[in-house]
């Protein structure tokens, strides 16, 4: 059984429909890339999974349990952590507090705790008492990922983690992926930057205007197919 499944998932902002019957399945241990142009519905998909956007109860099934429409806080406590687009660190909290708050409402049982997160992202520990927003963009992104890891999630959702960062910084951040996967965490990466995402993923979905236009293993998909699925005709 898949760890998380979306079954004919649709999502709305008021009268506007952003997702049209999305069906996906993420197995335990998968690293899934969800790619697509701006406005394709990628972020909405993550928000519907983590509870920030409403969904039919059985449209999102986590570990055999329907979770669509639950409150975001309840979904997080079940073991789905999210690194939101734009990082969204808490400016009033220090770097360390930003990490700690990730574990305040779910510790989980696992490898990730303050020490191991500092090991994963060296450089954060030296800035642990700094205000989170005083860090560089790349370090802020590391705090955001570390914050999500602190709850030892079974499923980690990463929304545009390379947005606005320099290529060398993006490489540093993606270098953490193997260590995260090594703990058995299922990772879903939403990116506009296809190259990085495809390099780490074992499964890819391409969205276009709220619908899945392509799915499969990255190795099996041709450049042309991806290009067509991404941009349409």
């Amino acid at each position: 059984m898949a760890l998380l499944e979306t079954r004919d998932l649709s999502a709305f902002y008021g009268d506007f429909q952003a997702l049209f019957g999305i069906s996906m399945a993420f197995e335990a241990g998968d690293t899934v890339a969800v790619i697509g142009a701006n406005g394709a519905g990628k972020s909405t998909l993550l928000k519907a999974i983590c509870g920030l956007v409403g969904a039919r109860p059985d449209a999102v099934v986590f570990d055999g349990r329907p979770i669509g429409g639950l409150r975001a806080s309840e979904i997080m406590q079940l073991g789905i952590a999210m690194t939101p687009e734009g990082r969204k660190l808490f400016p009033s909290l220090t770097v360390e507090e930003n990490l700690l708050i990730g574990a305040d409402h779910r510790k989980g049982s696992g490898y990730w705790r303050l020490e191991t997160v500092y090991e994963l992202f060296p450089g954060l520990e030296a800035r642990r008492t700094a205000a989170a927003t005083a860090l560089s963009g790349g370090q802020q992104q590391m705090v955001a990922i570390g914050r999500a890891l602190m709850s030892n999630p079974r499923l980690l959702l990463c929304d545009e983690i390379s947005l606005g960062l320099a290529p060398v910084v993006i490489r540093d951040i993606y270098a953490a992926m193997p260590a995260i996967r090594a703990q058995g965490t299922t990772v879903v990466i939403v990116e506009q930057d296809i190259v990085q995402a495809l390099a780490v993923a074992n499964k890819v979905y391409c969205l276009q205007e709220g619908r899945v236009t392509l799915s499969g293993a990255p190795a099996e998909l041709s450049r042309e197919a991806i290009h067509e699925a991404y941009f349409g005709h």
Partner: peptide, 16 residues
């Protein structure tokens, strides 16, 4: 403090 900063993201921390 987190909720005061950003009530939406606070929910992603499991805060009700």
């Amino acid at each position: 403090r987190a909720v005061s900063d950003d009530p939406v993201t606070a929910q992603l921390m499991g805060i009700d």
